[in-house]
Simulated scan of single mutants.
Amino acid sequence: MTKPHTTQHDTDIDALRRRLLVATLPHVPFDGWSEAAMRAGAADAGLDMAVAMNAFPGGPLEILELFSIEADRAMLERLERCDLARMRVRDRVAAGVRARLEYLTPYREAVRRGLALLSLPHNTPLAARLLYRTVDAIWYAAGDTSTDYNYYTKRLLLAGVYSATVLFWLNDHSEEQAQTWAFLDRRIDEALRFGGTMGRAAKKVLDLPDRLFVRTPRPGRVHR
């Protein structure tokens, strides 16, 4: 497959967007993912607000999306330094969740503010898209190659594990977040047990004869 051509303009825009993200992050704990934080970040970066809006036409939500994408990228970079081949699959998945949260630790309040914003009903599609991107990246790094019902089951279960772990992590003040990692291990063990049950049930359904899924035509309406 031919790689898309990257121009100097694309590179400059990406660099500008990252620069604005870095400048905006310190203001998020106080102003949330808002236009005020975005404006303060632009000022700190020595940029006009019009330039910031041109880089992020979607406003603060688009900056939040880039923040999540950057966290995924950093997570994958950290995983590349791990000897994943020698790990069990469940340990690779745990390493992925842990790598992402360790990267996010300095930005914990920004994460909290981001979750609050994404929980609003009109932001549900973005929240789902970002969560899927994260769990898909973790499974990909873990070496998952499934293409059947397991593909969706694994991502659904990991989405639950990751979401629960993030909420626990936000309020964990234990040394080196030891309680979070213990919580993560328990959730993964539970997901594996539940996933095995789901997988067996799905396989039974998929193994049923096709004729059982043929719908009987509905009778036409009787006119009096």
Rank of each mutant, 00 (worst) to 15 (best):
V205L: 15
A141H: 02
D12E: 15
T11G: 06
A110D: 04
D83E: 15
P106R: 10
P217E: 08
A182K: 13
E190F: 14
T105R: 15
D144I: 08
L79D: 05
R200P: 01
L118R: 00
L184R: 02
E176W: 03
D91V: 03
G96N: 04
L167V: 13
D210G: 13
A42S: 11
E62S: 10
G32T: 06
R155V: 06
A55V: 07
G58P: 03
L20E: 00
G195Y: 04
C82R: 14
V97I: 12
W169D: 00
A99Y: 00
L20I: 07
G220E: 14
R88L: 11
D185I: 03
D83Y: 08
T216Q: 15
L170Q: 05
H173Q: 13
F56A: 01
R133Q: 13
G195I: 02
T105P: 02
W169K: 01
T180F: 02
R133I: 05
A42T: 06
V93F: 05
R100C: 07
V214I: 13
L79V: 08
D185W: 02
D48S: 14
H9F: 13
V111Q: 01
D14K: 10
R113N: 04
L212K: 09
D14Q: 13
D136F: 06
A37F: 02
V161N: 02
M75S: 10
C82W: 06
E102N: 13
D72C: 14
D83A: 12
V22P: 00
F168L: 07
A201Q: 09
A116F: 11
I63N: 00
G143W: 11
G96R: 01
V205T: 13
G32M: 07
D144Y: 09
A43K: 08
L131Q: 07
L101Y: 01
T134L: 06
P217K: 10
T105Q: 13
L79A: 07
R221W: 10
R73Y: 13
R221G: 06
K203F: 12
E175L: 07
V93I: 15
S119T: 10
V22I: 14
G199R: 09
P125V: 07
W33H: 03
A110N: 06
R129G: 10
N123P: 02
V89A: 05
R73W: 11
F30M: 09
L170G: 04
L61Y: 03
G32K: 04
L167R: 13
E176M: 06
L20N: 00
T180Q: 00
R39C: 03
L76N: 03
G160F: 03
V93M: 04
A71G: 13
V205F: 08
G46Y: 08
S34V: 05
H9D: 12
Q179F: 05
D14T: 08
T165K: 03
L120G: 11
E190Y: 13
V111R: 00
G96E: 00
V28K: 00
T147H: 10
E190P: 02
T7K: 04
C82D: 11
R100T: 05
R193N: 09
M198I: 14
P4S: 08
T11E: 11
G143M: 10
T24N: 05
H27G: 02
R98T: 06
